[in-house]
Each structure stands twice: as C-alpha cells, then as structure tokens.
C-alpha cells in the first residue's frame, strides 16, 4: 500500500512523454491535448521567431503536433528529449516554409543528445535563463552569424554575401557560437 505522501506525489507528477506517446499510439486524443499544453509554447515561440508571422507559425505548429498524432512511433526514440526535438523541428520546418521548400525527410532520424526535460517548467525556465545569459556573452560577430543561420534561415553562402566574410569564417563562427553556448549552459 502506498503511503499518503506517495499518493499525493502521484497526483501532481505529470505523465511522462513516453506514456503519452503510448496513449497516442492507442488513439487517445486526450494525450494530444497534454502534449499541446506541454510543448506548444516552445514550438510556437521558435516558429514565430523564424517566420515572424503568427498564422504561419501556427501552421507549422499544427503540422508538428499532427506528426506526433500520425506517427507517434517515430518519436518514441526521443526518450526524454521530445521537447528539445520539437524545438529543433519547429526551427527546421519554419526555415523550410520560409524558403518555400518541402520539409526535409533527412532529419527525421532522432539523434538528439540532451539530458534536459523541457516538459518540466522549472527545468525549462532554468535552461532558458542560462541560454539567454550565454548568448549575451558571445562575441557580436558569432552571435549575429548564428542568428542569421538559425533564426533567419540564411545559408552560409547568403551570410557570406551579406557580411563579406569568407565561407570558412562563417562556418567557424556558427560552430564556435553553438559550442560556446553548450559549454556556457553546462557550466
């Protein structure tokens, strides 16, 4: 028999993503409502940042969540990283839309390595704070290059054209910026 404490804890503990996915596999529509409540803000924020248009961002978000509904199995491998994966998908799909190209299927393999659970509000807000602080510490050129590539969806060739920097420099800055961010957040 559980102790009273366990019972109380069980009542407030959110259902893990994996269990929600199992429910989606069984066709449980209510599990989708939970996913939406858990991750819509992240997905929408990223999509809106790239697309700068709320209707388009909503479309991207809709498609991403529908993909969970249609093929939950393809998300099963995300383990604890579903939220992170959805954030990356939001960025990639938004850039696809920006560039008016079909969503790439090459990125569907889940490889994401992250230990953070973005479904947990406290964990996420701590991570957001650290990430924002780490971005502020980046050298301005790195920060600008990363922003152009990640949020504005510009290719390195386009960035090269706009900034006059060499391709090597652009690649290098993007890479250094992301590595610095990871280390900054981990520290």
């Amino acid at each position: 028999m559980n102790s009273g404490m366990d019972e109380a804890k069980a009542l407030v503990q959110p259902e893990p993503d994996g269990e929600l996915l199992t429910r989606v596999q069984r066709g449980d529509e209510r599990a989708m409502a939970v996913f939406f409540d858990r991750y819509s803000k992240i997905v929408y924020s990223v999509a809106l940042r790239v697309l700068r248009d709320s209707a388009s961002a909503e479309d991207v978000m809709q498609e991403i969540f529908m993909q969970i509904w249609r093929s939950p199995n393809s998300f099963a491998a995300s383990k604890g990283a579903l939220g992170g994966w959805l954030a990356v998908m939001a960025r990639n799909r938004s850039v696809d839309m920006l560039r008016r190209r079909r969503p790439s299927e090459l990125m569907e393999e889940l490889t994401l390595a992250t230990a953070c659970n973005l479904g947990d509000d406290a964990e996420r807000s701590l991570l957001v704070q650290r990430a924002q602080a780490a971005v502020k510490l980046l050298p301005m050129e790195q920060r600008k290059t990363l922003e152009m590539a990640f949020f504005d969806g510009l290719t390195h060739a386009e960035i090269t054209e706009m900034t006059g920097d060499s391709v090597g420099t652009v690649k290098n800055r993007m890479r250094s910026a992301l590595v610095t961010l990871r280390k900054g957040v981990q520290a």
């Binding site: 990223v46 909503e58 390595a113 924002q132 971005v135 990640f150 992301l178 961010l181």
Partner: peptide, 23 residues
C-alpha cells in the same frame, strides 16, 4: 550533440503563447 546545442539556442527565442484557438 549539435542538435542539443540547437535546442539551447532555440530556447532563446522570445517566449510567446500561441493564439487561444490553436489548441
């Protein structure tokens, strides 16, 4: 690992709540 870095950077997008009818 790179995708993990992308997640961190993605989180720096200004947090916005989706329109209420989206759900």
């Amino acid at each position: 690992e790179i995708q993990g870095e992308m997640v961190i950077y993605a989180l720096t997008a200004e947090a916005r709540t989706p329109p209420s009818q989206a759900r």
